[in-house]
Design a binder for these strands. Structure first.
Length: 933
DNA sequence: CAAGGCACTTAGTATGCCAGGA
DNA sequence: TCCTGGCATACTAAGTGCCTTG
């Protein structure tokens, strides 16, 4: 895309890039944080961290408004799609579509029979309208700003985040949506869809292989293409326009980029991009369309009419607020959602008609129909263990082991070079499980007397052999593997071939829990078909069990969930391991998009939320005060919610589970956090907080021991229940997404300058790094890091020596003297002074680059950039920025990320519409006016 | 309301692959 | 041409959050 070029120039006004840079939507005022300092910790994992970083950008601000319109009204609405969807407690009267008869897992497990339930669906839940309304108002009223007082102190300023607008972005996107709409309009009116026929084929045959099938239903039904959107979602549909069906063809026209694929049966399938686009269309008419695609502004319009309305944010119901405090945190809450749900009622319509019969299981998932037809070939199992016959030594003597015993011994032996190998907990757990296989009377009575060296050496040899294979051999092997796996790699969802994320059953091994996990080293036993439950469409052929003589545990047909298969986790039998579609699938894309929409929607409410919690810093009710402080920390520091954990898990915490000892008050108003978070990654950060927060934390600590809960009246359910009262669908994790995306947007808009692509990429990486620091995404320093730095340092020194020689020769050349001979003794030919100067410049540039690279490497040695890019940064911000600045998107997103974010690729850069765009930011309502002009 | 169940997202590490440099 | 570093992907652990049950 470079395209925009032209326009861009035009647009710029004096402002220079800045305008361009303006993010589409989000903007923030403040400066970037300075973070830099974070501490990197040293080493390894646990240690590191952000230390005091100062505030990461976060917050600055106050301000809001000014710039942003924040308020676009407020309305909440819908936005949170999900909520709606979920809302209904399953039950839902609303949903109709459900598949008929499906048993839910629990039931199944219990062995009950199926339950049929019919629901209507709710598709729409929320009216977007509300939002709109907000938007509309030009002026805004937006709220004022932030609550915060802000002071910035050194770095961290408390909350200052400007309120920015994410929403604007939508504006940007408008175009996109428009496209969709057009599509719709144009064609369709009717909903024609692709024919169902197309899809049908898949389903046809059925065989069962022996598995137990429960609930099988006749299929039926509609096979239309998948609606991409969830039913509920945002969409609301009220609008629903007729959806068009999206026949591939039609779709295609619109999108160029889309590629078609033909599946083996000759069906036309769509590439991810296309699919994304298709989203807009709905399949059987059933679904709603997605409003998602519709620009918010547009949505508003349409929606407004909607009923749902609910608009008002205030909405939410409140739930109870009870006070009790029990510490045991309970998880659930009630929820406001119910109300929301009610709304749902809405939608129903659609599905019901089309849908087939499904019934859904009451409990699973959010109860929304996720697909209509689902065909896949099951999962592939790891190859059986191949005994090597190498004996371990026990007290110096070789010991005979059975195949099973040898297999487990080998798992342990090959871990010799890992840290686990020497950890007492790991060894103990391994020993307990292995001993069970050996039997009490076995010769081997003590792990420490075992010498696994022979197996370890065998393992090294095998590795070496593999390494030494010729390229051809490796290639052949790979092809062979591919051939075996090909059939398991794909699923056909509503007629579209999609990649499956993890179609391989996890092989047996020793559990590698992170941190001080109490179960590390336990044997993760081999999973057999009889432990696996498959989920396929009714009427779809039941995958053949790949292991002769065995059969699946069960075959379900639940279209309210997205998993294709699951089995009980052998380490924690209460949990499951699932097989899902790949990240590039439309099902995943949809939910990803919803996630970012939720975050974006938070922009409209953030001021209000901050005002609320600021007010509650002094609430009389302890629970309320704790909620206020916890929300503040989650907003300011991007902490995770912090669910309760069991004793058989590593001892890590999140915001709600912080212990008194994890927080240290440093007068006058700084707080030092030091705890192990997810994956046992240490979080160390000293930040300045609002004086009232400082005071409140001191109160929460008073009279407690270090191991007591800081927020003893709180748990994630209560916290989220409160957040939902403020904004339907809002949960603690949304703040992380919001802050990450806003930070990216602000940094990109503030720091991107004219320059070449490389420089722009550096800006992007810097922003990415900032986000990674905020989110505390760390990685272990590579083993070779030190050596690499040394090497680079040496190389730089060498280059500097050469530079010195060049300078000397320049001086000599100026004096008419011949150059000195090189350090290697070779003669150097004479050059004119300007030629020497040129060489000097080149050499200097080379040195600078190398120093910069080294600095970057050192700087990022403990920072993991990928996690935030994959999970937290709204890809639309990246895409729009790339378009605006003519940076090829491939420079930022890998192939798989491009696939994953196919739904975001259409965002308008906005450059061309800059004028309108800018206004947009400030005065959303003028948008149409401008554009039309 | 507590507790457990379930579904799905987020996360760091291990491994494989490829391009650039010696 | 081989080696290495760095990136991309594979893998799977560890979170979040909603729902149901008692």
């Amino acid at each position: 895309m470079g395209t925009e070029t032209v326009s861009k120039p035009v647009m710029d006004n004096g402002s220079g890039d800045s305008d361009d840079d303006k993010p589409l939507a989000f903007k923030r005022n403040n400066t970037v944080a300075s973070n830099s300092n974070q501490s990197k910790s040293n080493s390894q994992r646990s240690k590191a961290v952000p230390t005091t970083k100062v505030s990461p950008m976060r917050s600055p601000v106050t301000s809001p408004n000014g710039t942003t319109p924040s308020n676009k009204t407020s309305i909440v609405k819908s936005s949170m799609p999900s909520s709606s969807s979920k809302a209904s407690p399953a039950k839902s009267p609303l949903r109709n579509d459900m598949p008929s008869t499906v048993k839910d897992r629990s039931q199944l497990q219990k062995d009950q029979s199926e339950c049929k339930i019919e629901h209507e669906d709710s598709e729409d839940d929320r009216p977007l309208s509300s939002i709109l309304s907000g938007n509309k108002g030009p002026t805004s009223s937006r709220q004022v700003s932030s609550p915060q007082p802000e002071k910035k102190n050194n770095g961290d300023r408390p909350l200052d985040r400007a309120s920015r607008i994410i929403k604007d972005e939508s504006d940007d996107e408008t175009p996109i949506s428009s496209m969709f709409r057009k599509k719709i309009d144009s064609g369709m009116s009717g909903g024609n869809q692709l024919s169902n026929d197309e899809k049908k084929p898949l389903v046809q045959k059925l065989h069962q292989n022996g598995s137990t099938v429960k609930n099988e239903v006749p299929n039926g039904k509609v096979l239309g293409k998948r609606p991409l959107e969830k039913n509920s979602s945002a969409d609301q549909s009220s609008l629903k326009k007729a959806k068009i069906s999206a026949s591939p063809t039609s779709v295609k026209m619109k999108q160029d980029s889309v590629k078609k694929e033909i599946d083996d049966k000759g069906r036309v399938l769509v590439s991810p991009k296309m699919k994304a686009k298709q989203l807009s269309t709905r399949e059987d008419g059933t679904d709603d369309d997605d409003d998602d695609d519709v620009p918010i502004s547009k949505r508003f319009k349409s929606d407004s009419s909607n009923s749902n309305t609910s608009s008002a944010k205030p909405k939410a119901v409140k739930l109870n607020s009870t006070s009790s405090a029990a510490k045991p945190k309970a998880r659930n809450v009630v929820s406001p959602r119910s109300r929301a749900m009610t709304k749902n009622t809405k939608k129903v319509t659609k599905d019901s008609k089309y849908s087939t019969s499904s019934k859904s299981s009451p409990s699973s998932g959010d109860g929304q129909k996720k697909w209509t037809t689902l065909v896949h070939n099951g999962v592939i199992f790891p190859p059986p263990y191949k005994p090597h016959g190498i004996k371990i030594l026990y007290k110096g003597k070789p010991v005979d082991l059975t195949i099973e015993q040898e297999e487990v011994a080998t798992m342990f032996a090959v871990m010799r070079e890992t840290d686990y190998y020497t950890k007492p907990q790991f060894r103990e757990n391994f020993w307990n499980d292995w001993r069970r296989l050996l039997g009490k009377k076995h010769v081997i009575q003590k792990l420490d007397d075992c010498d696994f060296t022979p197996i370890y050496e065998w393992h090294l040899e095998e590795k070496e052999k593999k390494k030494q294979m010729s390229t051809e051999e490796k290639k052949a092997l790979k092809e062979e593997k591919m051939k075996q796996e090909e059939k398991y790699m794909w699923a056909v969802v509503d007629g579209v071939k999609e990649k499956i994320g993890n179609f391989r059953v996890e092989p047996p091994g020793l559990f590698r829990g992170r941190g001080e996990h109490p179960k590390m080293g336990k044997l993760k036993k081999r999973i057999h078909p009889c432990e696996i439950t498959l989920n396929i469409g009714k009427g779809a052929p039941i995958p053949e069990c790949p292991i002769a003589g065995e059969r699946w545990k069960e075959v379900k047909h639940d279209n309210t969930v997205t998993w294709l298969a699951f089995w009980a986790d052998p380490i924690n039998p209460k949990e499951f391991k699932y097989v899902f579609l790949g990240a590039g699938s439309s099902l995943k894309g949809l939910s990803d998009k919803e996630k970012y929409e939720k975050a974006r929607n938070l922009t409209d409410h953030i001021d209000n939320i901050r005002t609320t919690y600021t007010k509650n810093f002094t609430a009389k009710d302890v629970k309320m005060r704790q909620i206020a402080v916890a929300t503040y920390l989650i907003d300011k520091l991007a902490l995770r919610a912090g669910n309760e954990k069991d004793d058989d898990e590593a001892d890590t915490v999140g915001c709600c589970t912080l212990k008194v000892g994890n927080v240290e008050c440093i007068p006058p108003n700084k707080i030092k956090f030091d705890f192990l978070g997810k994956d046992s990654i240490q979080y160390v950060n000293t930040v300045e907080v609002e004086p009232l927060v400082y005071k409140a934390i001191g109160q929460f600590q008073a009279g407690k021991s270090k191991t007591d809960d800081l927020f003893d009246e709180l748990d994630t359910s209560k916290l989220n229940a409160h957040l939902k009262e403020l904004v339907p669908g809002l949960t603690a994790k949304v703040f992380r997404t919001y802050n990450a995306s806003i930070t990216l947007d602000e940094m990109l808009s503030q720091e991107t300058k004219d320059g070449d692509v490389t420089q722009k990429i550096v800006v992007y990486q810097k922003a990415n790094k900032e986000v990674a620091i905020i989110c505390n995404h760390q990685r272990t320093v590579s083993k070779t890091h030190g050596a690499q730095i040394e090497k680079l340092t040496a190389r730089i020194e060498e280059l500097k020596e050469v530079l010195k020689e060049l300078k000397t020769n320049l001086d000599r050349a100026k004096k008419g003297k011949p150059p000195l001979e090189g350090s290697d003794g070779k003669k150097i030919r004479s050059l004119e002074p300007n030629a020497w100067e040129k060489k000097i410049a080149q050499q200097s540039a080379k040195i600078e680059k190398m120093e910069r690279d080294m600095h970057t490497k050192e700087d990022l040695k403990t920072v993991a950039l990928g996690t935030s890019k994959i999970n937290y940064l709204d890809p639309r911000i990246t895409v729009a920025w790339c378009k605006r600045h003519e940076v090829p998107i491939e420079k930022i997103f890998t192939k798989s990320l491009l696939e994953k974010f196919a739904w975001a690729m259409d965002v308008e850069p906005e450059a061309k519409r800059k004028p309108a765009f800018l206004l947009f930011i400030f005065l959303p309502c003028l948008e149409f006016y401008y554009l039309s002009e």
